[in-house]
Each structure stands twice: as structure tokens, then as C-alpha cells.
Design a protein around this nucleic acid. Sequence first.
DNA 1: AGGTCGGCCGGAAACGTTTCCGGCCAGAGC
DNA 2: GCTCTGGCCGGAAACGTTTCCGGCCGACCT
Lengths: 339, 339
Amino acid sequence: MVDIRELARRTGVSPATVSRALNDRAEVSPETRRRVLELAEELGYSPNQPARTLVRRRSDMVGLIWDTGYTTQNQRHPFLLDLFVGIKQTLAESGHHLMLVSTADTTAAVDVYVRAARQHSLAGVIMMGVDEAHPAITALVDSGTLCVGIDLPLRRDRTTYVTSDNRTGAASAVRHLFDLGHRAIATITGPMSMLPATERLAGYRSEMARLGLTPDPDHIVHGDFFLASGYDCAARLLALPKPPTAIFAAGDEMAIGALHALADAGLRAPRDVAVVGFDDIEAATLIRPTLTTVAQDRAALGAGAVQALISALDDGGAVQAPLRVATRLVVRGSCGGSP
Amino acid sequence: MVDIRELARRTGVSPATVSRALNDRAEVSPETRRRVLELAEELGYSPNQPARTLVRRRSDMVGLIWDTGYTTQNQRHPFLLDLFVGIKQTLAESGHHLMLVSTADTTAAVDVYVRAARQHSLAGVIMMGVDEAHPAITALVDSGTLCVGIDLPLRRDRTTYVTSDNRTGAASAVRHLFDLGHRAIATITGPMSMLPATERLAGYRSEMARLGLTPDPDHIVHGDFFLASGYDCAARLLALPKPPTAIFAAGDEMAIGALHALADAGLRAPRDVAVVGFDDIEAATLIRPTLTTVAQDRAALGAGAVQALISALDDGGAVQAPLRVATRLVVRGSCGGSP
DNA sequence: AGGTCGGCCGGAAACGTTTCCGGCCAGAGC
DNA sequence: GCTCTGGCCGGAAACGTTTCCGGCCGACCT
């Protein structure tokens, strides 16, 4: 394994100079730099990261924390994978790697998270799908580690977050239903403790108002983002004296649940009731009718988180404004907009 | 940040001894060990991993390589996430962390993969969803890095792999259909270049034989694991002079495609044709009828990969026999076995 | 012509561990 | 009483970088 001293010997300069050449510092002549770089290429030199991290006190890795239990049991992130892809891609472009910090039992998480960050001198940490109030999380933020959350409004004074433009997305769904002639538009929303749920509801509300509609209070019901709750909420809506003709669900699973409820009530979408979801999970194209939904740009979410982190890193840890990534209404079969 | 020398000073022994105590080596008296450990706990000491890795030449991380493009474009791993969870969990138990090695463009992958492994002194690498013949992969294996594949028959002389017991799983599906009275059982399988596809087909064949059935050659058709191919294959099967009464699809997406073909042909599952899938993806419970399928134990797959890696690490790199994890038939609505 | 400045470079000290090598001391064996 | 052994320990050299500090030398200014 060729090291920096080997390069120094073969080029006839000192290790210090080789290091400077490799790191593209100013204090080295163009000629020397060229020779060093050439030889490095030729010998297939690649720097030893642990050594580099040791002296720099900052590694080339950023950590990723997401709560396993939270995710699989609750399926709260049906598209976690796409986030990974976005993160991975953007990270690679800036020459970083991603470390998944793991913990066996969640009670010890508090230690594991902050220790891992310290032990490995992580450049920063991205987190998602975790409880923002968990002691492990607050401890990590307090420890001075650079953090950014996805769909997670972390403490605003020291961290930032990125999320979809939920308001606009919800508005576009409502608008679409309106354009199709619907006036009695209901919404199935999520727990008000979750940022996306509150924002999507707000978007629904403001767009209804903008269109001159005042939603029937009974037409705003609360689910928990899971299939069953969508089913139950829709069933309740359909049993109303004045049932809605269209339903905007704040999540695709709930939307699919609603579709099931429709079918079981002998109704059909989109003929009898139109349904729009939010997220664009894979199943949206697998079910019949296919689901019209507000797609989140998952890759962009991941990429945004990384960019926020990197630029904060460059700025010496300055906090930034939360980032919102645009959504896109993808119309399919469940609301009769077009095929 | 308290270091090992601080501990040495405060306990009155040398750094060498502290290191020995911390690493549970024999050459230190019980009394000294106790004192060191106690103080370490009290001061919240945690070792600097880069420094440790530097001298040990082996980090506490294992790398994970999976090909992004491959995965999202092809959806070949609809359950990748659950693999992550299994890997993460098992890794945590052995005190390791996971590093996602990323590459911006796949043409440069060859370099990035083996460099990352070398640069970070990775303890080993797990890979999945990659092309086993890709130069990047073979180069990595050749570089002497300890590798284990998931659903990936890597070069057997230096690596091992873990996969589901596809034969038995396929057999259980066929057997289930047989028990329900079906005799004309067709299969939609995948590309013969993929290990799981070949094994599932083999399982189908041998179980049919065991049951005394000789499958109509027309009843064995090849898809590519995606929805559309399942649809097409099923349509072809239904158009046969002697159409099957049951279909075993080697993947859930294809099974769902088959279900759609049935519906479009005016047939209903399970009344007219029974369908069984393989994988148990999330959508299996979201569609109607719900899909009977052979579930893979994804967490166990991930865990198995890690265990294989760890034990090879302990054994000094000994190759092991491939690991096969059991599948489980979960019967739902699409074949009329029970509700 | 003397002084200053800036570009380029080398030596050496860090960074926080682990491990080799050797030393001390108590007890055992003769 | 002397050597040998084995348990415990300390000093110091690594591991591969980066960076501080200072030195040299040519060019430029006055």
C-alpha cells in the first residue's frame, strides 16, 4: 500500500509538500504539483482516511440516523429507500460517504448516537423518521454535531430541515378535484403531531378558501397514515348525511384504504367518488384503479438534506432556512381526470 | 474530549495499560482493570475510532454496496429496506457500523468501491442488487476484501452468499395450490440469469414431479419480475387452448400483473384462477384480492449476511457454505385457501 | 546596495491509539 | 541463596496524515 512518504521519496520532495499538492493548496509550485499528482495516479495512491480524520478531526462521512422500529412497524416512510438514493448520490458528488449508525436496543440509543458521532468524528448527521423529542436526538444536537432533519423540524437554533412543499401539494390536489367539478371535497389527514400532516391540512384549508368553498366540518377527519385508518375514515365520510364527492387523503396508504371502503360500500372510484392521495408510493400504480396522487420528489429531499449539510459545513456551521422541495400532481385513474 | 492518556494520568498507570484494560487483554491485573473501567465510565470516555483503525488496520465498519440505478429503475429489491434493518440490527449487536459506499457515476464505480474499502480499512463488504460480473465487483473481490453477497452467487472461492430457500418456497406454493385441488398449475418465472429465478423454477419443477404432475410446457413462461411482464405472461396463459387454473408467479409484482390480466379478461381470482406470488411486498396487502405469497424473511437475510461476515472475520477469512434462509407461505385472498 | 516581501519548501510535532520489547518483582525449584 | 518463570507493567515506536514554524532565494522597492 503506497503512502504519502513513498510519493515523497519518488518525487524527491518532502511529505509535507506531497500533502499540499494532493490537497490542492496554494503553497506549491505548479510543476511540483503536476509531478506529484502524476505519480499518485500512476501508483494508484489513495489517502488513508482514518489517518486523515485523526489529524483533521473531521471525517469524510456523514451519519444517518433513522429509527428502525419506527419505520418498519409503522411504515411511516414507504419511500425511505428513494431518500437513500438521493442522499447517496449527492453525497458521492461531494466525496463523502454515509455511515448508518446502528443501535441494538433503542433504550441505549442515546449513548450510541452521540458516541458514534464523536468516535468517528462525523462531519454531520442526517436524521429522519425519528422522534424529535427523544433524548437521544436532543443530546446529539446539544453535543454540537451538525444535524439536518428530513420531515423533521429539529431545534431551529442549531439545525435545519428539509421537507416537501406540503401546502402547495395539498392545494394542487384540491384544485384538481375542483377543476373536475367537485365541490364537496373532504380530507383525511394525519396526526397533528406530524409536520407533514399539519401542513397538508393547512394547504387543503387555504385552497378551499381560495376557491370560495367552506368545507363541511364533518369533512375533515383524522387518520394515522395507515391503511386501516383510511378505510375507517372513508367509511365514516360515506355514512354522512351529506357525503363528499371527493376525498383528498394526506397519505397514499390512507387513500388506498379509502378506495377499499368505497368498494365495500358498493361505490366505484372515480365514477362515484374521486380519491387523491399524497406520496406516490409504489403501490399507487399497482392497484386498480391506479391512484392519482401528489408525488414527493424523494430523491430531491435526500439531495436537499445533503446539500444543506455540506453548505453548513463550509459556512462553519451556520444555520439555514428550512428547505422545501416541490411536489408534483400525478393524475391517474382514481379521480377521473384522464386515463 | 477525554483520551486514553487522561485516563492513564488519573489512574496512575501507563497509556499502554489503560489500552490493555479497555480491550480486555489478559496482561493486566483485575484490580487495575476495574479502576480503569470505572474511571472510563465516569468520564464518559469513548475511543477514537480513526486512531484505532489506523494502527489496527481494520475499522469497525463494514461496507454496503448496492447499485442505485439497478435498484430504483428495476425495483429489483422491493424490500431492500427490510434488509437494511436486518443488517443494521445484527451489526449493532457485534459493535459494528455500516458504511454505504456511494459512487456518483457507475462507470467510475470500479475505483470508488475498491478505494473506499481500502481507504477506510473496511472490515468487510456486503453487496446486493449488483451485477456480479461487473469489473468493479470482481476487482473488489480480487483486492482481498472480505465479501458476502445477498441473492448474489459471488466467486465461491473467496466469498460466500446468503439467499432465501427459493426451492422449498416455490415448492410450498405449488403444494398449496395442489391441496386446493388445482392440477393445471402454470408458473411465471424470471430471467434465468438471476439466481432466485432459476431456483424458484427448479422448486416448481421438482414439486410438480413429486406430486405426479407433468407441467404443460406452455405453462412455463418467462417474465422479468416487473408488473407488465406478469400481465403479458398471464394474458398469454389465459389465451391458451388449455389455460391453467392456477398460476405461481416467481415475484409479487408479476403476480399482481397477472391479477390485472385476469380482471381485464373478465375473470376473477380466486374463483376462476388462483394466483400465488413470491416475496411478500407491501402491496400484497394493499390490493384486492390480497395476495397469497411466499414470504421471504428479509430481516433474517440481512442478519445472515452480517453473521457470515463476522464469523469469517473471526476465522481469519475462511470461506463458508452459502446460507439459505427459510421462507413462509402466507395465504391470503388470491387463491381461495382461506379468507 | 541593502532591506523586505512573497513564493516555495522541509523538519518536526502533532492526532489517539496499539503493540513490541524489555524490566521489575515475587515466588517456585534446585 | 541463586536462577528461572510468569504476572504485571512502562517506554517508546509505530500507524499515515496534516500543519505549524521557520528557512531559503529571487525579485522588487527605495
